[in-house]
Write a protein that binds this DNA or RNA. Structure first.
Lengths: 194, 194
DNA sequence: CTGATTATTTAACATTTGTAAAAGGTTTGG
DNA sequence: CCAAACCTTTTACAAATGTTAAATAATCAG
């Protein structure tokens, strides 16, 4: 069994979700590799099919895409979050979205095809990633409710309440597009609640 | 094996997603039951934990909830769609959302706990529902993109393009809240594109 | 068939958000 | 440390959407 102490943070998080048999964990460890990306660099560019499941070991990343020439941020991943372009990974279609390191970031990458192949052998791996997908799905359903039926101000207040350090680590222009508003609009909101 | 020809439409749809061994299919069939709901009636009320996976055999249903006293429609399910309150089913928390028959509707119900228990025995059942969850997740991710970064008019045009008969079968007030706008606003959009 | 109920549209006005441009701030690399 | 690049705020105006109320239109139950 490969000794990779650098991925302990990943194993800790995963074992909380669904415990793995030793052989399954070992098979998973064999698939993992570390990738370091400098602040502002893309881990994965637009136009490529997503074939890797990433985990943020350290740092901060986002998924973004271009809408009429403007960057739109779809998702932020903090330490110990999983980051994946689901609409590409689960369909095999090229993604129009990119993954970028917002700070200097270290990712743990798991090649999806090789992982999926293990599902036939290690049932608990399939179960683990099934549960991860379910959790991500729930988050996304809840996000729709937030986006659609709260005002921009409510969404901003909720964001800084649930994730206070986000505002210190992420440029406001990214937060604005994540909230579905312009940067000007976000500035106005910030001014009005001061 | 129970003979339940009434659920063939479900089995057809599922076998397209992931084929099942005979015993697995048989175990699934044993779990299924038919539920008929009259137009306008709730299949599942607000406040109850979602413990059943439903399939629309015939008719049309929606998920809705109340926001400041107003009904908000979150999802429509047509014939052969699966309908589930994921944020409740996958967390065990009571749902603040209800499932309602928009027309007289016949559902096929699968009790979730009993299904999940079969996953340990029939691996392919877990795989099937893993894939279903992945597909639903992808749909939801794409829906966020639609909601957040298209105008209400673009969303309406997309909706009637992708689902032309929706407009004939669903009251506009439900479509309006599904699009995240007021009924007045939808009326304006409809007037402007005429 | 008909009155009652429900659904949809229209109007007038208020509020929110967007756009474009400019002015301050802050960060960063040399 | 400084200049360039980038980020954030502000301003003025435009466009989109919300709110309330009333007028039509369509549907439903008896």
């Amino acid at each position: 069994m490969a000794d990779k102490p650098q991925i302990n943070s990943l194993l800790d998080v995963l074992s909380q979700i669904n415990p793995l048999a030793e052989e399954s964990e070992s098979a998973l460890i064999d698939l993992c590799s570390l990738i370091s990306v400098k602040k502002g660099q893309d881990l994965q560019p637009v136009g490529v099919t997503c074939r890797t499941i990433y985990f943020v070991k350290q740092g901060l990343a986002r998924i973004y895409y271009y809408k009429a020439g403007n960057e739109v941020t779809e998702y932020f991943a903090f330490e110990h979050d999983i980051i994946v372009r689901a609409e590409s990974l689960f369909t095999g279609m090229p993604s129009n979205k990119a993954i970028q390191a917002v700070e200097d970031t270290v990712f743990i990458g798991i090649p999806a095809e090789r992982l999926f192949a293990q599902y036939d052998i290690y049932h608990d791996l399939e179960r683990l990633f099934r549960k991860i997908t379910e959790m991500a799905y729930v988050d996304t359903v809840n996000r729709i409710e937030t986006i659609q039926f709260h005002t921009a101000e409510e969404r901003y207040l909720q964001l800084i309440r649930e994730n206070p350090d986000l505002i210190k680590r992420i440029p406001l222009k990214h937060i604005a597009s994540y909230l579905g508003i312009t940067q000007v609009s976000l500035s106005r909101i910030r001014a009005s609640i001061r």
